[in-house]
Computed example of a mutant assay.
Amino acid sequence: MSEVMDYKSRLSDPASRKFETFSYLPAMTTEQIKKQVQYLVSKGWNPAVEHTEPEHLMDSYWYMWKLPMFGETDIDKVLAEAEACHKANPNNHVRLIGYDNFSQSQGAAMVIFRGKTV
Rank of each mutant, 00 (worst) to 15 (best):
Y61H: 10
A48G: 11
L11R: 02
G44A: 01
D6R: 07
T30D: 13
K8F: 10
E83Y: 09
T30R: 15
K43C: 13
T117A: 06
K116A: 07
V118W: 14
D6I: 11
S16N: 10
L57R: 13
L57S: 10
G71L: 03
E83N: 08
D100Q: 01
Y63L: 11
D6G: 03
V41T: 14
V49A: 02
Y61K: 15
R17N: 03
K116C: 02
T29P: 13
A84D: 13
A108Y: 12
A88N: 10
G98M: 07
A108L: 05
I75L: 04
D76F: 07
I75Q: 08
D74F: 01
N91L: 01
P68L: 05
N101M: 04
G44M: 06
V49L: 01
N89H: 11
T29R: 12
N101R: 02
L25V: 06
R95S: 12
P47K: 08
F70V: 15
L40C: 13
E31G: 04
H93V: 00
F19E: 12
K77R: 13
E3V: 12
N91G: 07
K87M: 10
K34G: 08
E50K: 02
A27D: 14
F70I: 14
E50G: 05
H93M: 04
L57I: 00
M28C: 13
V111H: 06
F70G: 12
N92I: 01
E20I: 06
I112Q: 11
M5I: 07
K35G: 14
I75H: 01
P68A: 04
S103Y: 06
R95L: 03
M5D: 02
S42N: 03
D6F: 03
L79N: 12
N46V: 05
V118R: 13
Q104K: 06
Q106E: 12
S60G: 08
V41L: 15
L96G: 08
V37Y: 02
A80E: 11
G115F: 05
L11I: 00
N89E: 04
T21P: 01
L25R: 15
Y99I: 10
P26K: 09
Q32W: 04
D59K: 06
H56E: 14
Y7L: 00
C85F: 00
S9F: 02
H86G: 09
